[in-house]
Design a protein around this nucleic acid. Structure first.
Lengths: 376, 376
DNA sequence: CTGAAAGCGCTAACAA
DNA sequence: TTGTTAGCGCTTTCAG
């Protein structure tokens, strides 16, 4: 039933290799033959079998996308952008969900390795050394994790956390808390590092609570702790946790932002819909997805996979280019942050309202323009 | 570099066909040989190449998942459940996003057809006849669309819409509006049909506004119309639109539920987070994903794909079983609905508060238990 | 129970 | 420019 190259060859009266060439190297075939073959292919509804093709070319034209949790609203825009970008370049995307489980990540990379030309590892939870090891099995691009020898797409959450803390300190908050993210998260460490430094610089205390699951429940569960700790402002690992915290504080009768200010990270679409609307550090998720795919496919074109004869695969020359791209983040000030107990004191210039609200601007297409290359 | 069946054969001193059997028909191989082969495979890190295998078996062990819009929060839980269920059964999932575009759907089915054993079409926008035609190219399971000859997973939004309208009428609303969904959506038609009938039965007027894009913006854009139409209660095609409407009404200074009641459909996680919390018809998205995958794989096991000799593919006997599964929905009453102008009049028994709030219960694993088979 | 051989759909030398 | 041939990694008859 499925129509193969042979059917087309028969129909157009040429050898199958001519049909093959018509699709994979059209310039090597006589224009007249080409149109005839194309016509036959068309009305037989022929489509090359990519898997069969992959067997010999070594390129599947598929990529893998490994995601910690598809249901976490942070990821869908990234998935969508990655899939769209991949498809524009004639690649298809396997999507796999690991449920935030490091072991599942490893297994998935193995399972997908032979079926794809490369894998995007998004917010991985496994160790750096394991990632490096896996990268010898299949080309990898890592999102939200910095690794020396590998191409990475990073979001500058450090800068974001700093802005958030400065915003809060500027509003007169001195007792701050940080709701940490999950164990193994590079993002969580970055936020913690930057937030601690910024708090110190601003002469504020920062209590770290966590690690926590990066979910609404995770935030909700810490509401009482936050309340008891007597802090007046909280930075959460992500918006989901911030929203959970909002709910928890509401249940405890704590008013936001009058008694406690809350800042999230990500700017998921939900954050404009809570009451109060969430102040948050916007991360360019869609751009990250596009960029990561670009980097993976770039690498893919650079690296010849197979050489005929002997069946041995020979890595020809080209060393992997391991650019690391850092995408900018931006503090979006909404309604969940307000003046703290020291407002107007000690830092007169900045205490009033902070800078005017920013709107998140999702960067456009170009890879390099989307961020700064921090290493290569 | 990639280790093949031949490497394992060499290492364990047997013929490649024995290695092959060790993996695809272990019972046909001497236990002692088997363990030896397995051991060699293990420490060489051998994994069968599924694409090569597919070439001869006719089964790729992949499925395709075609989604109108990954970023629409309705879909991620479905994708997650489908991917998880597929993987449990040793299948991988291609995910593709169509941006609500019917033409893209068709192209994607073609593009994926050869690489998968079947495709899940979720909330398709293309015509029934086209879907039927495509189903001759690759096994299809359709979610949120009813088609005579094809396996479908449906959610009983008709019942849901009826409950919603009855709930509103019971609260004393007589002037109702329906925000319709996108053109080509079966769900939208079902809701409209059921809502109209229920309104008529309750002696209420129902103004239909639409079609609309199934997004927050789509709902927001209709706020003024709703206000101007003078209705006191609105049923929206989905939660996203309902939430947009909430925002729009808020901007117009219209209070919910005091002046206008709003009901959504889907019960996306967001709906518990808006203020007021959204009353909505919960749809069992995760169960739909699982069920659809089950039906697809069931079909896949039923339908032998290839027969050796002559290379012709022969459909052997078995007719496709085209069960249609209808999953239950449930009205979840929260804070966006309240008494209307006729509260307490004319229908004394029901006007007060309606039935107590329900919590959405996501049905468990089993396919058939998850709903009623309405046809087969 | 195991080996030999053919071939899935396709591409890539090599010859003509 | 086209046909011939070998073979990608694997499964599956068919003999032995």
């Amino acid at each position: 039933m499925p129509v193969t190259i042979r059917d087309v060859a028969r129909a157009s009266g040429v050898h199958i290799s001519t049909v093959s060439r018509t699709f994979s190297a059209p310039h090597l075939v006589n224009p007249e033959t080409r149109v005839r073959v194309l016509a036959c292919a068309e009305d037989l509804g022929y489509r090359p079998n990519r898997a069969a093709r992959a067997l010999i070319t070594g390129r599947t034209h598929n990529i893998g996308l490994i995601i910690a949790d598809i249901a976490n609203p942070f990821f869908p825009p990234l998935i969508k952008a990655a899939e769209s970008q991949a498809r524009h370049r004639d690649y298809h995307v396997f999507v796999a969900d690991t449920n935030e489980d490091a072991a599942a990540e490893e297994e998935l990379v193995h399972a997908l390795a032979k079926q794809v030309d490369g894998v995007l590892l998004c917010s991985p939870r496994m160790s750096n050394s394991l990632i490096e090891q896996l990268s010898r099995e299949v080309p990898l691009v890592v999102v939200n994790r910095q690794l020396a020898g590998l191409p990475c797409v990073l979001m500058d959450v450090g800068q974001g956390a700093r802005s958030a803390i400065e915003h809060l300190a500027g509003l007169g908050h001195r007792e701050l808390a940080l709701l940490g993210g999950p164990r193994g998260s590079w993002t969580s460490r970055e936020i913690r590092r930057a937030a601690s430094a910024a708090a110190r610089a601003a002469g504020a205390d920062l209590t770290v609570l966590g690690p926590n699951p990066p979910t609404e429940t995770g935030g909700l569960a810490q509401a009482e702790q936050v309340h008891r700790a007597g802090v007046t402002a909280v930075l959460a690992y992500n918006d989901l946790m911030a929203i959970g915290l909002l709910e928890g504080l509401d249940a405890l009768g704590v008013r936001v932002p009058q008694e406690v200010s809350v800042v999230g990270v990500d700017d998921i679409s939900l954050s404009r819909l809570t009451r109060p609307k969430l102040t948050t550090v916007a991360t360019p998720t869609a751009a990250a997805g596009r960029t990561a795919v670009d980097m993976l496919l770039q690498q893919d074109t650079d690296l010849p996979r197979t050489t005929r004869g002997g069946g041995a695969t020979v890595a020809v020359g080209v060393r992997r280019t391991t650019a690391q791209v850092m995408l900018q983040t931006e503090l979006v000030i909404r309604d969940s942050t307000g003046p703290g107990p020291y407002a107007g004191r000690e830092r007169p210039g900045t205490a009033a309202a902070g800078p005017g609200p920013h709107r998140r601007a999702d960067p456009g297409n170009p890879v390099v323009a989307a961020g700064d290359v921090v290493a290569s």
